[in-house]
């Protein structure tokens, strides 16, 4: 039977929680025995996804929640970052390199490009009730115990 495990955590959409989210995911996926490079890629992708929620999801001051879920299935980690914010109007445009909806704030517009480069697969679902980013990465030399 394939190795299987998950964790879920919810926190407020504040920038101070970005470091917490990165460390949280990194600590959880250590059980797959990833390389330092793989861990850093995952931490960066999580940071980009959480930053998007912090910066864009709740624009009217009242910061809502971010739900972060990690699932391990075999040697693959799947990370879901979900908010209940205003949503992304044009997902295709948002995924274009260097596109930012806030050019006056010195933003690089490379968040999705970084996620796509560092993970194997990135999916974005969004409507006016919120946004979900689901991304996965296969850990190349993963070693984990088979569980019943």
């Amino acid at each position: 039977m394939k190795y299987s495990n998950f964790m879920e955590v919810t926190f407020k959409a504040l920038s101070i929680n970005e470091g917490f989210a990165r460390v949280c995911v990194a600590s959880f996926c250590v059980q797959l025995n990833p390389s330092v490079d793989e861990i850093t890629d995952i931490k960066t992708a999580v940071s980009e996804a959480v930053t998007n929620c912090v910066v864009h999801a709740y624009p009217n001051g009242n910061k809502g929640d971010i739900k972060l879920r990690c699932e391990l299935e075999g040697g693959t980690i799947t990370i879901t970052v979900q908010d209940k914010g205003v949503g992304i109007k044009d997902i295709e445009k948002a995924r274009e390199p260097f596109y930012t909806s806030k050019p006056s704030e010195e933003r690089s517009g490379m968040g999705f490009t970084v996620m796509e480069s560092f993970m194997d697969n990135v999916e974005v679902f969004s409507n006016s009730f919120g946004t979900t980013i689901k991304m996965s990465k296969k850990i190349l030399n993963s070693s984990c115990e088979v569980v019943g």
Binding site: R107, S108, G111
Partner: peptide, 10 residues
């Protein structure tokens, strides 16, 4: 010790 694309903007 860590940087994401926000650092590029900076």
């Amino acid at each position: 010790s860590f940087m994401d694309s926000t650092g590029i903007g900076v």
